[in-house]
Design a protein around this nucleic acid. Structure first.
Lengths: 167, 167
DNA sequence: TAAGATTGATTTTTCAATCTTC
DNA sequence: GAAGATTGAAAAATCAATCTTA
């Protein structure tokens, strides 16, 4: 039933640049890379489903609300927001449309630069976020953080710094 | 209205006087979790763009070809394949449609269970995969593996085992 | 001219319903 | 009836083109 997957059994002592799981990868490389793909996909799906079930709020939308609430002055420019959540600028514009239609977010014009637009939470948006955050936190803890030791958490932070220095 | 800003520390669970990024998370938790989100999203985008530019093959499609080529007997059932790549069953069915239309994949009926269908590479699909794999490997190395020490790679493997024991 | 953002057209993905075989 | 898979309808994401202001 279990088809051989890329993270499959491997002789862990195979030192030679010999046939590993994924051609061209060493065993450790394979585990590090495909584990990342699988784990992040798994957790993302789970967290998204939880949020939709409990609050009718997809993960992307939740992230937008969260980023906005964290921004200086409680508002962010669209371009900056698109960079933070992983969405094209037009994709974000559509998502903000939806959230605005649901009354969770508003667009505020930018006095310093009339081309710009800010996204800002409405009171309803703040309430929604507070509710959803509890669900999300519990999910992230259960699926991820609680399975890691403090040392592993700290090392992971360093790993991401190496991978994506900007973050 | 001066409601407490959402980026203020919350003291609902009496944790340390935490000047955290995300309310409810410690600093290390935040780095570990959001770093994962950002890094995997960043790399996924980059790798997808590279494959499309070099071979007209999106990352999802590449993963399907790779999974099929790795499967026992060079063929996999649709349901199993959908589980391996991150796609709904219907999403996969459509992706296989496209790949079939491009001549890279075929559907084979399953003699043991007439309800089932196998996906299988065509010779053109094997060639395409071999070409694309070089691009992909280089990308994964450049974006990810080369930025990690051997120790970090090993640590990551352990982390994914803890997060997703099944993989 | 370039930057910030939105819109139109298209593609990709999903949900729900369906069909077929177990 | 349930499992494997596909299809129609609808939602979501993207690219390219557009509009407005710097």
């Amino acid at each position: 039933v279990q088809a051989p997957s890329l993270s499959d059994p491997v002789d862990t002592d195979a030192a030679a640049p010999a046939p590993c799981c994924a051609p061209g990868f060493t065993v450790d490389e394979t585990r590090a890379w495909f584990g990342l793909l699988h784990s992040s996909a798994h957790m993302t799906r789970e967290l998204d489903a939880d949020l939709v079930a409990a609050h009718g709020l997809p993960l992307n939308a939740f992230e937008v609300l969260m980023r906005v609430s964290h921004a200086d002055g409680g508002q962010v420019r669209m371009t900056e927001l698109a960079r933070q959540v992983v969405l094209s600028l037009s994709g974000l514009s559509r998502l903000v449309d939806r959230l605005e239609r649901e009354g969770l977010l508003t667009r505020e014009s930018c006095s310093a630069d009339a081309r710009g637009a800010f996204a800002k939470l409405t009171p309803a948006g703040e309430r929604k976020l507070a509710e959803a955050r509890a669900t999300h936190l519990a999910g992230v803890r259960a699926l991820f953080l609680h399975r890691l030791s403090p040392v592993q958490q700290e090392l992971l932070g360093e790993v991401w710094d190496a991978v994506l220095p900007g973050a």
